[in-house]
């Protein structure tokens, strides 16, 4: 029973390894020589410099360079950022927390809104469906842009702190922080909402007609028992898979939202790093986003595994 989960775990590790290979390739392929710049870096010990040079030495075999890079990546050491003059690790830690916060808030918002809206019946439900299909046809970056534009136009009516250059300064106050988060999180949630709504409505409709649910109905079981013990488990499977898939699309969406709303997250960092040719940060950012995505999928798989007894036995 455990072995299928172990296989899944091994699979994730394999993906991570492949991503690391991809990142390493990106690092090697990046144009420009940054050693000359690096040597001028003040806070860098000669020891670190030597190890970095070893990693990048074109004379040492590529496998060795890759192994060295992996080893330091395992310790969370992605080298030095040239643009920010600090270790990439310190830079990332804060940014990842911010991105997780934003994505988490967006995810929760979307699911809450989705669950709320999917309980509607009759005419409001039709309106919701129309609204969802309209939202569905606006890509995330466009939606974020539009939301920001609307907010800016309404600025006189409801002053919201938007796009301040250094939000950390004002983060001392809790309410301020929530207001800071509200708009980008809304942008994320609205982008993800149509997908959630679609799956919620479709999932419950399909579950109503599942053979086991029909059978429970024909046996004359009380409606409450049918709902909680038959329909809900039946509907859960696709929703859990959606939850796992959603993390990837949320991360992609968060990039543009962060840039647009000035939210200091991973995506914004990555963009700045690209514009400033800060290869170490680019690679570390890509690697960490992949890590988040793989962990999210693994979490969804674990939930599925706990929920569906058939999966616990399926071989790989």
């Amino acid at each position: 029973m455990i072995s299928s989960l172990a296989t899944r775990l091994a699979h994730s590790l394999g993906s991570l390894l492949a991503v690391s290979l991809l990142c390493f390739a990106l690092l090697r392929a990046a144009p420009g020589d940054y050693f000359t710049t690096l040597r001028l870096e003040p806070g860098l010990s000669p020891q670190t410099l030597r190890s970095i040079q070893q990693q990048a030495d074109p004379r040492s075999p590529i496998v060795r360079r890759y192994a060295l890079w992996c080893a330091s990546a395992l310790h969370g050491d992605f080298g030095q950022s040239l643009a920010y003059h600090m270790p990439v690790r310190a830079l990332l830690a804060e940014r990842i927390a911010n991105t997780l916060l934003l994505s988490g808030a967006g995810l929760c918002g979307a699911w809450l809104l989705g669950l709320l809206l999917s309980t509607l019946r009759g005419r409001p439900a039709a309106l919701v469906r129309l609204f969802a299909s309209l939202l569905w046809s606006i890509p995330d970056p466009v939606l974020a842009f539009l939301l920001l534009w609307t907010a800016l136009r309404l600025h006189a009516l409801a002053p919201l702190p938007i796009g301040t250059t250094s939000p950390t300064a004002s983060w001392t106050q809790w309410s301020n922080f929530v207001r800071q988060l509200a708009l980008p999180a809304l942008a994320m949630a609205l982008g993800y909402l149509p997908l959630v709504l679609r799956h919620l409505q479709g999932g419950f409709d399909a579950a109503q007609h599942a053979p086991a649910v029909e059978a429970a109905h024909m046996h004359g079981l009380p409606p409450r028992i049918v709902l909680f013990r038959y329909i809900l488990p039946e509907a859960a499977n696709p929703l859990i898979s959606l939850f796992g898939l959603g993390i990837g699309s949320l991360l992609s969406a968060s990039l543009f939202v962060e840039v647009l709303f000035g939210w200091p997250g991973l995506g914004q960092l990555l963009l700045n790093a690209i514009l400033m040719r800060d290869t170490n940060v680019v690679v570390a950012g890509v690697f960490c986003s992949a890590l988040l995505l793989i962990l999210g999928n693994l979490l969804a798989d674990l939930l599925l595994w706990l929920h569906d007894p058939r999966l616990r036995e399926a071989a790989s």
């Binding site: 993906s15 991570l16 991503v19 991360l251 990039l255 992949a290 995505l293």
Partner: peptide, 9 residues
Amino acid sequence: TMISVPWFY
């Protein structure tokens, strides 16, 4: 491997 990285990243 390719879909382990968020697409826009």
